[in-house]
Simulated scan of single mutants.
Amino acid sequence: MDDWIAARGVWPLRDEPGCTPIPEHLLADPDLSLMAKGVLALLLAERGRPVNPYKDAYEDEADIRAAVEELLAADLVVRVAR
């Protein structure tokens, strides 16, 4: 599947390579599934660059799609044309 998404809004960054801060309130959000939190972490690690979450994924496509839809509904990500 070819579906590119990017994190929406302004997110904290650090100068340290390999360090991606993820706001604790998102990790603790009971309305976000573990899969959605993982996809969001992937997006934040890309520092604004669009990602195709299906590329090289081991997880089931339907589960990834559900996580993407969950993040879209929560207004945390946007779809990006590639």
Results as ranks from 00 to 15, higher is better:
3 D>H: 06
4 W>T: 07
4 W>Y: 10
4 W>A: 13
5 I>H: 10
7 A>H: 08
7 A>T: 05
8 R>Y: 06
9 G>A: 06
9 G>D: 09
10 V>Y: 03
11 W>F: 12
12 P>C: 08
12 P>W: 04
13 L>G: 06
14 R>K: 00
14 R>A: 05
15 D>C: 06
15 D>F: 00
15 D>R: 05
16 E>Y: 00
18 G>W: 02
18 G>T: 06
19 C>P: 00
19 C>Q: 08
19 C>G: 00
21 P>N: 12
22 I>P: 07
22 I>A: 12
23 P>D: 11
23 P>T: 08
24 E>F: 14
24 E>I: 14
24 E>H: 07
26 L>T: 13
27 L>P: 01
28 A>N: 13
29 D>Y: 09
29 D>S: 03
30 P>K: 15
30 P>E: 08
31 D>K: 14
32 L>R: 00
32 L>F: 08
32 L>Q: 07
32 L>I: 00
33 S>L: 02
33 S>V: 04
33 S>F: 12
33 S>H: 07
34 L>S: 00
34 L>A: 04
34 L>F: 05
37 K>V: 04
37 K>E: 03
38 G>W: 03
39 V>Y: 09
39 V>C: 11
41 A>F: 02
41 A>C: 09
42 L>I: 08
43 L>F: 01
43 L>T: 04
45 A>Q: 12
45 A>T: 01
46 E>Q: 14
46 E>T: 01
46 E>S: 15
49 R>D: 10
49 R>T: 11
50 P>L: 14
50 P>F: 12
52 N>G: 13
53 P>K: 10
54 Y>F: 15
54 Y>W: 15
55 K>T: 13
55 K>V: 11
56 D>N: 15
56 D>Y: 10
57 A>V: 08
58 Y>T: 03
59 E>W: 07
59 E>A: 15
60 D>H: 14
60 D>A: 13
61 E>F: 15
62 A>P: 02
64 I>M: 13
64 I>Q: 10
65 R>W: 10
66 A>G: 08
66 A>N: 04
67 A>R: 03
67 A>S: 05
68 V>E: 02
68 V>W: 01
69 E>H: 10
71 L>Y: 02
71 L>V: 07
72 L>E: 13
72 L>D: 12
74 A>V: 01
74 A>E: 02
75 D>R: 12
76 L>A: 03
76 L>W: 02
77 V>H: 05
78 V>R: 11
78 V>Y: 02
79 R>V: 09
80 V>Y: 00
80 V>T: 13
80 V>F: 11
81 A>M: 14
82 R>K: 14
82 R>I: 02
